[in-house]
Design a protein around this nucleic acid. Structure first.
Lengths: 339, 339
DNA sequence: GATATTTCCCAAAGCGCTTTGGATGATTTA
DNA sequence: TAAATCATCCAAAGCGCTTTGGGAAATATC
């Protein structure tokens, strides 16, 4: 059943029926009810294709699969994606995925996606410190929002968490507990979130008059193995760290193992803090001992990102939305005072 | 630039230009070249929306986020999804995702997706032994393919791996090595793949005249914790298993830990085999010791599933495609002979 | 009571593509 | 040479919706 048939059935014009369904004010409440009832009765669903053609809007948001694949990255991505899909569905949008493969560069994938006009807007995730995507999308005239921030000449919409503030607060906590020899096991510096966290770490140390020990400031892909390896190396140091600050629970897990191997009990002999993205199945409170963590739900971020993006599409406004979420520091059992 | 403008530019009709671009035979090679050149020059891309409306095809495949969320499940899903997206892009299709949330049941999500006609076909993943989705989709007239198999009244297209054969072979290997007390740490029985694996396990045991010890046949969500817990329990048994057969690397990881805790060295004192889905970052060969595994790439399965599904759409044929992939049994260092 | 204003509804024109059903010459065939 | 066949191309009719630009009746304003 299509609009024309439904209109005929009701003895109304297509215009009126269309307006009744889409909630325009030019139709009486009585008629609207009648239309809705008939639509329900006949199981009428507007054709997405026709609506898209008529409005020029596809009702679809696009995301690109991250080029780097690894376990934690995949888990974070899917959690974020899940939030996006959930919210998008609520708002009547679809989410479609593209992928940069061997032969096709990420830039080509973005260009192709934009040109085929299959999506109304795009979501950019995991930006690097210097990321070309905002510039590219702005130049192509495609609305977009970034989950995170990056250096960019053009203004852009974003939602980020306060990585800098979070790690600043974590360091402050440790310093207040008497720790001075604090190690940072960070993600790769080229990722903006990692750069921000390092900045927060350094600022907090400096603010307390402590010079960060350069050898204690580590970066590496965030996985358990790197966490283990780097922590083990630092623990072998003549003056070992008394606290580890990790960028992910995966690294924290590796670091905890290294501590155990070194005969140190986390929460008694050594302190451990990690950032917790609130993934479905990997949570700081389930560690042994429960981990003190900076935490922020990445799924929630996905929902909000979509919400902001759809707002932008429905009512383009200046300035572009920009949100920086504060990050909770949840103190649990892994952060003893320094002895 | 649209078709009309391009046609005017070339002094041709829309019909001819459309046919030239879509490779119909009614247009001379010379004209086709001329059209393609002009299209390239002006950066012409057909409007997806218009094409969709005219053809009634959306050029989009749909997938539903699995309702259960957990780490391994998410990793498997994203690996499969990645394969699907990659192949779909090659074939000119988009992949869109929907999600069953709190209020909306999975069935409602399927119904809504089908009625809004946003997708040409759907991909059903992780089917249960008794899964309603094939029946539902068949009834709704939506083409689909299942990754896996299920009990269903209606015929349906599927791609599955030979789970039964794989676990049969694994048991055979262990028995040939002298093992008799073999434990199965399986995923939940309601999943079809788990039921198939259990069947393979039992068949192989019985075929060799060994009665499976019921207490050694375990099912649980596939994660490290359950692997650890169940293995630890069985190892405390007066007559402990001499071999573990796990349905996932996560369980194997937990089981390996339980073995170490019990003072047993995997690959010397006890045997361990697991199924390896070839996830990006979790591979049997990276275990210590490298794990003997039944292996099959789930990303490859995603690619093939899309390939079969698109074939179905382009040229509907009976019978529906059905593929069962053999599973490799790769012997590594974790399976010593029984002492 | 006459004139504005609202309220509610409609006809028709797109949106940009595909596809049907010819039309026109050129080439074969009889 | 006339008829049949091909090879190319075209005009126009949708696909199912939104939206513009009114129009008629009901209500408010003076």
């Amino acid at each position: 059943m299509n609009l024309k048939q439904l209109a005929a059935q009701l003895g109304l014009s297509q215009t009126t029926v269309s307006r009744a369904i889409n909630g325009f004010p030019e139709v009486s409440e009585e008629t609207r009810l009648r239309v809705k009832a008939a639509a329900d009765l006949h199981g009428y669903r507007p054709s997405a294709a026709a609506r898209r053609l008529a409005t020029g809007q596809s009702g679809t948001l696009g995301m690109i699969f991250p080029a780097e694949r690894n376990m934690l990255g995949d888990l974070i991505f899917i959690e974020f994606l899940g939030g996006c899909v959930e919210k998008a569905a609520d708002l009547g949008y679809d989410v479609t995925l593209a992928m940069a493969r061997g032969s096709q560069s990420e830039e080509q994938v973005y260009r192709r996606t934009v040109r085929s006009a299959r999506v109304d807007a795009m979501i950019v995730s995991s930006p690097l410190v210097a990321d070309l995507r905002p510039g590219l999308l702005a130049q192509l005239g495609m609305p977009f929002i970034v989950h995170g921030r990056t250096a960019s000449d053009v203004p852009y919409a974003y939602l980020d968490i306060d990585n800098r503030g979070a790690f600043h607060a974590a360091v402050k906590l440790l310093v207040d507990l008497g720790h001075r020899r604090i190690a940072l096991l960070n993600g790769e510096r080229r990722h903006n979130y990692a750069a921000d966290r390092e900045r927060g770490f350094r600022d907090a140390m400096t603010a307390r008059g402590i010079a960060p020990i350069e050898d204690f400031v580590c970066e590496a892909p965030m996985n358990e193995e790197n966490g283990f390896r780097q922590a083990a190396r630092l623990l072998a140091h003549p003056a070992r760290p008394t606290a580890f600050l990790c960028s992910s629970l995966a690294q924290a897990s590796g670091a905890a193992k290294a501590c155990r191997n070194a005969g140190l009990q986390v929460g008694r002999d050594i302190a451990l803090i990690a950032h917790d993205d609130r993934l479905a199945d990997v949570r700081a409170e389930n560690f042994d001992p429960p981990l003190t963590a900076t935490q922020s739900s990445i799924g929630e971020a996905g929902r909000r990102v979509v919400s902001l993006l759809v707002d932008m599409l429905r009512a383009p406004r200046e300035p572009l939305p920009r949100e920086i979420w504060p990050v909770d520091l949840v103190v649990r059992a892994s952060t003893p005072a320094c002895r």
